[in-house]
Design a protein around this nucleic acid. Sequence first.
DNA 1: CGGGATCCGTCTTGATACTG
DNA 2: CAGTATCAAGACGGATCCCG
Lengths: 115, 115
Amino acid sequence: MAQLKRSYCPIASTLDLIGDRWTLLVIRDMMFFGKQRFEEFLESPEGISTNILANRLKSLEDLNLIVKQPYGNHPRRMNYQLTERGQSLRPVLVAMIEWGLEHIPDTMIPKGGSK
Amino acid sequence: MAQLKRSYCPIASTLDLIGDRWTLLVIRDMMFFGKQRFEEFLESPEGISTNILANRLKSLEDLNLIVKQPYGNHPRRMNYQLTERGQSLRPVLVAMIEWGLEHIPDTMIPKGGSK
DNA sequence: CGGGATCCGTCTTGATACTG
DNA sequence: CAGTATCAAGACGGATCCCG
């Protein structure tokens, strides 16, 4: 993720934080599909690779968009959840969903629905 | 630009089209600042380079988000304008503007205002 | 002079294999 | 299960050149 500040423009700055090919997909998985574990993100059809996923989760944590906690008694069982700040990205995602559904053929909301 | 179709997800598909570091900034310049010429895009503070700009303008044209026309009597004087389909991305940009203004310090709408 | 195309070095991204 | 290490491929930046 580019962390440098390119301008005072809210669009450019937002893109610096979350404007890469994978970050918003991870947020999508948490926001609309309730995914919380490393393995669950790997299962998404886009096929993110493990190093990229680890990198993006770390960035999102640094940005206070998600929090990471161990859970259960398993030693390395981790749990990722959106913070309130992360949740606040919902309108951005929703705008993309609406645009995609209207302007890109064959896109659709899966049967599971949007949570 | 990744043009391959990764899934039926409208978010993933939208990101495939416009989810790179520069495309939305070019659209921003057209949508909110009324820029229409190659040289004008180059002047934006983020500093896109000429090869990247040419590449993105071509992609946007292929996607029918912008149209390119000669204008005036100068031989190579080109004019880029958003199509209706391009204009329809406005809610996505607006959502990012609102998020950026609220969650990223020091971001602001320039004095010129948003057109 | 405006609007690119090309080349090249660098930095980032990603696929895969491997580890605690 | 949840990552790290390694290394190849691609995106990017800058300079330069080209063409009408």
